[in-house]
């Protein structure tokens, strides 16, 4: 009897028919939202990934036979890619490019977002101006930059006139700064992306902790450093990760401006994969390379998700602590 009473007490409350119907409707809605994505993944991405997987385990040369006659070579192509010095250099260049441009985009994007945090007159115009670079097609950015970045071009000229000393770097032909040139263009092109994310993050910061810090007499810098920045950490992380992944895949500007040159100064991963697959027609090696890069990206994304979850947990904990009643109050 006691057992029966206990079971009844522990049993979850019976959901009402209305609640059940609501839950079903929510599930249907979620499915309807996800269905196109699932279909796209199943019918388009999965076959392509499988075909690419097939190629990365089969050595196929386009000149000799049909692709289904390709020789099975196991992991030889992966070994070949991983021991290819050009692939190694391309990876390093891509990492250097993605890191520098991501940080650049973030710093400028954050600064702009901070300036735009509080409403002011004519803010919408500034907003439009700040996001304009992102709306410019990367190839257009590249060709416009090409015209401006000649040694005797307008950029060097303006800097020389403003600074008073001769400023003549060869942005487009010096192999030591060519990658930096693309990086600067990437920063110009994609700072608005970081700006938008950071502006959204800044707008979402709850007012109470900031007001509390102000009442306690904290300086603006301290409020920023000890209140706003910790609250923004998940957003910052998201902005950095998304930008980094995008930067690792940058191709149009690098190709339009340099095609891997001068020398091999701008031969990044996308450029090398493109050349291997579509210039050398080494479809199998290109597929193996793409898989390795994809796995690298997956690892980065998983790490990022892990970090984001940790950030969210720490924030939740912080909010919980702030909600707890003060002892004796």
């Amino acid at each position: 009897m006691a057992v029966a009473a206990l079971s009844a007490a522990e049993a979850p409350p019976q959901a009402s028919p209305r609640a059940i119907s609501r839950q079903r409707a929510i599930r249907r809605f979620k499915l309807s939202l996800l269905a196109p994505l699932i279909a796209l993944f199943a019918f388009l991405l999965v076959p392509v990934l499988l075909l690419q997987l097939y190629f990365s385990f089969h050595q196929w040369t386009v000149y000799l036979s049909s692709w289904w006659d390709a020789d099975y070579v196991g992991i030889d192509l992966f070994k070949e890619v991983l021991t290819d010095p050009r692939f190694g250099w391309a990876t390093l260049r891509s990492l250097a490019f993605a890191t520098s441009s991501t940080l650049g985009c973030f710093v400028f994007g954050f600064m702009l977002a901070y300036l735009m945090k509080r409403p002011f007159r004519g803010q919408a115009i500034y907003y439009i101006i700040f996001i304009l670079p992102m709306l410019t097609v990367p190839v257009v950015v590249a060709y416009t930059a090409e015209m401006m970045l000649y040694q005797s071009g307008p950029i060097n000229d303006v800097i020389t006139r403003l600074s008073g000393f001769e400023f003549k770097p060869s942005w487009l032909s010096n192999p030591n700064i060519a990658l930096m040139t693309v990086s600067l263009l990437e920063i110009w092109n994609w700072t608005p992306f970081s700006f938008i994310i950071m502006l959204a993050g800044l707008s979402a910061i709850p007012k109470e902790p900031v007001e509390a810090a102000e009442i306690l007499g904290a300086s603006k810098w301290r409020i920023f450093w000890e209140v706003e920045l910790p609250l923004l950490r998940p957003v910052i992380l998201l902005a950095l990760v998304l930008r980094f992944l995008e930067a690792m895949a940058e191709f149009p500007k690098t190709w339009a401006l340099f095609q891997g040159g001068p020398g091999s100064a701008t031969e990044t991963l996308p450029v090398y994969i493109f050349m291997t697959t579509w210039q050398y027609f080494q479809i199998s090696k290109g597929a193996a390379m793409s898989y390795i890069v994809m796995l690298m990206m997956v690892v980065i994304v998983l790490l990022a998700i892990q970090l984001l979850r940790r950030e969210k947990r720490s924030l939740d904990k912080m909010y919980e602590q702030s909600d707890e009643p003060i002892a004796g109050a």
């Binding site: 000149y63 032909s173 010096n174 192999p175 891997g260 040159g261 001068p262 020398g263 091999s264 100064a265 050349m275 210039q279 050398y280 027609f281 080494q282």
Partner: peptide, 23 residues
């Protein structure tokens, strides 16, 4: 020859590297 672009880019890349002092 078959593979013209690949032969050519290997040579072109190395010549370009030498021209800019990388090789």
């Amino acid at each position: 020859l078959t593979g013209y672009l690949e032969f050519q880019d290997a040579l072109g890349k190395n010549l370009s590297e030498a021209y800019v002092g990388q090789l």
